[in-house]
């Protein structure tokens, strides 16, 4: 969760006094009360966040919508570089990673994620049209937690997402 300094101040104030009102916080931090309400809502949001990485906007968009319906927070990235940045700033609970992307492909992104201390514990599900055993093994070797071939059934993907999230939370 990408909290900024203001969010941290709000949390500090709430920790000192559990019964503090939004108005009091607004007065102390000199921020409008509406924003305080929004920020507290965001901070207290317990939904899982999923980062979808796919260069095909036509795939990314319907997938994002479908997962949002399932009550996930969804962040999109259309290439490898963006994905690596968002993995750090947005701290997703799970990453859905397309393999065939220009410039930096899914294997490279995954390898980088898995070698970075900040991101190595984020589970990764690979999405790809490549369905040979060799490619699946390569993906899993690099550190992917699961592998789903395109085209897939939405329900299956959702089930796998739930399963991977459950496992990562138990650890």
């Amino acid at each position: 969760m990408n909290w900024d300094a203001t969010d941290n101040l709000i949390i500090e104030l709430i920790k000192k006094n559990e019964n503090i009102s939004n108005f009091e916080i607004s007065t102390i931090l000199d921020i409008p009360e509406d924003e305080i309400v929004q920020r507290i809502g965001k901070i207290s949001d317990t939904r899982s966040k999923i980062l979808i990485v796919d260069d095909e906007i036509d795939t990314l968009l319907p997938l994002q919508r479908s997962l949002e319906v399932e009550d996930y927070i969804v962040v999109g990235a259309s290439n490898g570089k963006e994905a690596l940045i968002k993995a750090i700033t947005d701290i997703p609970d799970l990453i859905l990673l397309d393999l065939m992307m220009p410039e930096m492909d899914g294997y490279e992104v995954c390898a980088k994620l898995k070698t970075d201390e900040l991101t190595k514990n984020i589970p990764v599900i690979m999405l790809t049209a490549k369905d040979t055993v060799r490619e699946k093994v390569k993906g899993l070797d690099i550190g992917a937690d699961d592998y789903v071939t395109k085209p897939f059934h939405l329900i299956e993907l959702k089930a796998r997402i739930k399963s991977v999230l459950r496992r990562s939370k138990n650890q």
Partner: peptide, 27 residues
């Protein structure tokens, strides 16, 4: 693998989209 990707990508997109529309979600 490229052709397979090229053929599967639009299919995949259509499938997800259709399934989304099919779902009970309030769109």
């Amino acid at each position: 693998s490229l052709v397979s990707h090229e053929l599967k990508t639009p299919l995949s997109s259509m499938k997800i989209s259709t399934e989304y529309l099919e779902s009970d979600a309030n769109i």
